[in-house]
């Protein structure tokens, strides 16, 4: 088991190094950073001085290692457009995105598992069939369309919820939260549903099919033969076995929620890192773009790693190597 964990950690580090390389290459080769920094009025001497300062004259590997070292210390360069450290800008924007992604993920997981279990247990019921059919729409509609649809119904027609922004936020330490004000809570509902709907449907369909599979298993039949209650069988024996394979996919989906926040943030003008990235693209603000890509990758890799390690906690068969086998 320990060997496995170590191997997984090394794999993750390798992936992150590759991502770092891509981000670094963007810095180095997309656009000329010196030109970006110095603007029109510059002399050849200025250019040389800045190139030296930035270490652009060092050999490529040295530059890369320096870049990584800086990144590890949270030094992600300076935004071309705002002239402030990228890390500072991202730290300002991150709470909005993380809160949105968190609520979306919660929505996707809770409703995905809940409805998945429901549609599996009531396999032939009217409600279950209705949900399954509707969920096809959820999977096939693009996110921005769902967002616009929700805005139209709940903001424009009914006027219940705001159509853009984060509402009022409260600052706690360096973290600005929308959870503590009514307008903040209202504002997060539509974007969170928009962002999580696809993942919710995906998790639901997966849970349903896994659960149907598990319900056919011999140990479920044996559990019924022992007279265990339907509740104990469905929510104890069946659900636990269902969730083992569901965890990976769910983990990946949570990663993609963070990534896809870009679209939702644009539709709802949500002031998070996704919107920051979109704006950065318009201004070719390479440091911001690179930092964003690295951040997303780190999240992805971390979530994956956590999911893999979670397996050990849930499935005793995997940690079998450590304990006695047979008798």
């Amino acid at each position: 088991m320990l060997a496995y964990v170590i191997r997984r950690v090394f794999q993750s580090i390798f992936v992150l190094l590759m991502v770092g390389l891509v981000a670094f290459s963007m810095f180095r080769f997309v656009g000329d950073p010196v030109e970006n920094l110095l603007g029109q009025e510059r002399t050849q001497a200025d250019i040389e001085r800045v190139r030296d300062q930035l270490g652009l004259n060092d050999p490529f590997p040295v530059q890369y290692v320096k870049f990584l070292g800086n990144a590890l210390q949270g030094n992600l360069g300076v935004s071309y457009r705002q002239g402030r450290p990228v890390s500072e800008i991202i730290a300002e924007r991150a709470p909005a995105t993380l809160e949105l992604a968190g609520v979306s993920a919660l929505f996707a997981v809770v409703f995905g598992i809940g409805l998945g279990v429901f549609t599996a247990i009531r396999r032939d019921g009217f409600m279950a069939n209705f949900i399954m059919t509707t969920s096809l729409i959820g999977v096939s509609l693009p996110t921005f369309l769902i967002g616009i649809l929700l805005i139209y119904i709940f903001a424009v027609e009914l006027g219940w919820l705001p159509s853009f922004g984060r509402g009022e936020t409260v600052k706690i330490g360096g973290w600005s939260t929308g959870f503590l004000t009514e307008s903040g809570l209202k504002a997060i509902i539509l974007p969170a549903i928009t962002l999580g709907l696809y993942q919710m449907t995906l998790i639901m369909r997966l849970v349903r099919s896994e659960m149907l599979e598990v319900l056919r298993a011999d140990y479920i039949k044996f559990a019924r033969a022992r007279g265990l209650s339907t509740r104990a069988i469905n929510f104890g024996h069946a659900l636990k076995n269902t969730l083992v394979p569901v965890i990976t996919v769910t983990g990946l989906q949570i990663g993609s929620i963070i990534a896809f926040a870009i679209i939702t943030e644009t539709v709802f003008q949500w002031p998070g890192v996704g919107l920051l990235f979109i704006n950065a693209i318009q201004f070719v603000d390479i440091p911001v773009m690179a930092a964003y890509l690295m951040l997303i990758s780190v999240m992805f890799v971390l979530i994956n790693l956590i999911v893999d390690l979670l397996y050990f906690v849930i499935d005793p068969r995997l940690s079998a190597g450590a304990s006695t086998r047979g008798h």
Partner: peptide, 16 residues
């Protein structure tokens, strides 16, 4: 009570 054919699949793998 009932005893089934395959003991490898009769027991829930995730419970002691």
């Amino acid at each position: 009570g009932m005893v089934f054919q395959d003991p490898l699949t009769s027991l829930n793998p995730l419970y002691t």
